[in-house]
Design a protein around this nucleic acid. Sequence first.
DNA 1: TATTGTTATACTCTATAACTATA
DNA 2: TATAGTTATAGAGTATAACAATA
Lengths: 155, 155
Amino acid sequence: MARGRKPPTQADPVDFAGLRSYIGYMARQAQTAVFRDFARITEETGLTPGEFSLLTLIGANPGINQITLVTLHNLDKSTLSLAIRDLMRKELIERKKDSRDGRYYALRLTRQGALLLEKATLLVEEQERKMDATLKAGERAQLLDMLRRLSKAFD
Amino acid sequence: MARGRKPPTQADPVDFAGLRSYIGYMARQAQTAVFRDFARITEETGLTPGEFSLLTLIGANPGINQITLVTLHNLDKSTLSLAIRDLMRKELIERKKDSRDGRYYALRLTRQGALLLEKATLLVEEQERKMDATLKAGERAQLLDMLRRLSKAFD
DNA sequence: TATTGTTATACTCTATAACTATA
DNA sequence: TATAGTTATAGAGTATAACAATA
């Protein structure tokens, strides 16, 4: 180790320049932090954040089809197709052809999928409570509203 | 097309269940929206969001080393190594061995890198102004502070 | 022995394009 | 012709593990 000066790792305070004044940068940081924390939930349930969202949407909208999910999640249909295949293999969802239009699949949760979603939802809500601990009264609703407006700004 | 009912794609209003009340979900949605919009900036500059952040940090902290960047960005050092290699190839940064401790590289922007960063910064700030248009007075500072607290909550 | 940085490898997530089937 | 969904393929972005060089 050099004697004259400590390595910059812990020594010099880092200048973030404008970075921390950018919503884009800070939103990214917050989001990756939440996802890293989600790893605990993935361990317990086998579900990724994306799979949790899909199960929640299918659970609340039995009979929903893939193209609708695609528009909700802003994914390519090929990407969703792979995610659906995996959820089918895990027997968390099932589907059958729409009797009126054979191009559509109607998706719904299996019993097993519903149970797992219930368990995962509890863990996710626990994670949300952890976030609440850093927010003051009323801030959660305000934050959600601002995030919603940001998403819409780039439609 | 079936006659009795429209396909669910546009017909039935979708039930988001609790999804839109989750900060984790909404932060993800906002962040991906910002990144999709960043594609314009990538086209003009050749820089990804991650590269823009790295150039900003190196520009504000000439002589910074990779291990410091790793702790700031929460990346593995192998991941950063590849990003640094690409920035070197594009001749946007340069580095030399620390004379006191040969394990470190001191990173700094090239002239070309500084110019590109300047251009990219203007575009990023334009993007930030677009976000401001959806926020009321005072909300930007509040949002940044909440996002900072969220990141810290999962340290 | 410990630390900075590289490389080989693999995994995840994503999109594009070409395809099947249904309408 | 147009739409729902699948498959083959490829490109990001990421981490793990083994490594070389330096301390």
